[in-house]
Amino acid sequence: MVKEIERYGIPIVHMATITTISESVGANRIVPTVAIPHPVGNPQLNADDEHALRKALVKKALDGLATEISQPTHFE
């Protein structure tokens, strides 16, 4: 899905836990996430900490979209 959307020239960032798969299938902008059942969250944290973590992850994704790249890149 990621690649097909990118083919339209729209930058897309893949937020995924198993980034090895993202790389194999050809995503270009990748943000590693927490775990498969809760990629953008962590139920083990308290509400404030989880919020901070989530905000940081999404910020990385947005900043990734605003970053020129020439090859598959992780934003960590």
């Binding site: 990621v2 930058p11 897309i12 893949h14 995924a16 990629p39 979209l65």
Partner: peptide, 23 residues
Amino acid sequence: EFGTQIGAELKAAGVDGVILTST
């Protein structure tokens, strides 16, 4: 197929960037 269809819509709507999350 999904990516192609969704991408076409996003392009037409003038979307500038996409976040796609996977589990």
